[in-house]
Design a protein around this nucleic acid. Structure first.
Lengths: 220, 220
DNA sequence: AATAAACTTGCAGCCACTGCAAGTTTAAGG
DNA sequence: CCTTAAACTTGCAGTGGCTGCAAGTTTATT
């Protein structure tokens, strides 16, 4: 998504490919935010981007992919960071810090993400696919943590549990971030969520506007 | 899914509808487990179930729905149970106990769930839709907890966080359950996952069978 | 038995998506 | 500069998911 300027050899061919890809995602996001996801055909997007609909499918495997993006780059970066962090701190803390990479990428791509939010809100069918793009990453991270701990990733539930819980927390933070239209820092929201996790999700202290019925009995 | 025998008025019409629906899901699960999800057409399923493909879409909105089911009943039951439990115990504990209802439903429907697992493993595209069916339920539960705590569900992150984390934990437990082909109790796996959550996901104590290679040296 | 309601089905059609076989553009080597 | 190979685009034809419509058929109602 974010136009990445690498020192890699960029012939005018690869340059044009990047342009086309950007044009397609741009058109997809713009049109879908305007009309709603299923009121936009692949042909609309392709025409808006100035290519044929057949070409669209040379760039994206599905209409949804064009809207949601792939985010593979960040995933790889996160895996590398995790590898460095895991040996030096508790798992949960390592994951928290690694996730900050994704936070940075999303904050850098604010505009696209806000459009995505609008589109997803109108077409909830998209939300699961967004989760799926994480699913593969989650599986890999689970194995990475299992390897680090020296346990079997299916016999032992911990690695999968940490990954699933942190991933869910991240999603909650991202949702709040987009709901707040960026008035809050995504990083701060993520930190808040991870703190809640690390504390074991205790009932929050509510500044008591009014007491509720049925006494909450602290266990133990 | 599970044939529910209510005292409700069951004319031979509603009876036949139930039969058709069961035949369709049965055919869908059987065929997809055998050949793989996208090697089975709606026509195959309909023919196997003895109805036209047009009728298929009178019962299910999509091919995926036929395989994954809807699970609306359990969701409603869980919501009711939560309403009773919330005022008398911490949120996390209330959710844990409410989830046991879903656990019971799944254990009662073992066979279908194991087929679903096989199918989903071969066609990971299905996993997100399974998550989506939960998404609506999660939103409702979040609001229920927010109302109980007397906080605004978007200003305050706790309700969404608890729901997302517990939901993810449940998914992990279910995955392990299916991976173990039912040799373990789903209830026990869920309890284990919730315990990990309540403890704040600390690094597990690994019984050290052997030190692993590539020495991760914990710094002082 | 007559009427209304519910259910099934075929048909026509939209759209996402794919493989194939052109045609066109760019890169590479002499 | 010219040639050749590779890469990219595109149209075409076809599959399959999914929908609305307009019968036709079955079941419930009075």
């Amino acid at each position: 998504m974010t136009p990445i300027e690498q020192d890699a050899p960029l012939g005018r061919r690869d340059l044009r490919k990047q342009q086309t890809r950007a044009a397609l995602t741009g058109a997809a996001l713009r049109l879908c935010a305007l009309r709603g996801f299923d009121q936009v055909t692949v042909d609309d997007i392709s025409t808006e981007a100035g290519v044929s609909s057949r070409t669209f499918f040379n760039y994206f495997a599905s209409k949804e992919d064009a809207v949601l993006g792939d985010h593979l780059v960040e995933v790889d970066a996160m895996r590398a960071r995790l590898a460095v962090l895991l040996p030096t701190m508790p798992v949960l803390e390592a994951v928290r810090r690694a996730v900050l990479l994704v936070v940075a990428a999303m904050e850098a791509d604010r505009d696209h993400w806000f459009l995505r939010m609008e589109i997803i809100q109108r077409s909830p069918q998209l939300l699961p696919r967004l989760v799926l793009s994480n699913a593969e990453a989650e599986r890999a991270t689970t194995e990475q943590i299992a390897a680090h701990l020296g346990v079997d990733p299916i016999a032992h539930g911990y690695p999968a549990l940490v990954v699933a819980a942190t991933s869910a927390s991240f999603r909650v933070a991202a949702t709040r971030w987009m709901a707040a239209a960026g008035r809050l820092s995504l990083g701060a929201l993520v930190d808040e969520a991870f703190s809640g996790l690390a504390a074991g999700l205790p009932d929050p202290d509510i500044p008591p506007p009014r007491p509720r019925a049925g006494a909450p009995v602290p266990p133990g």
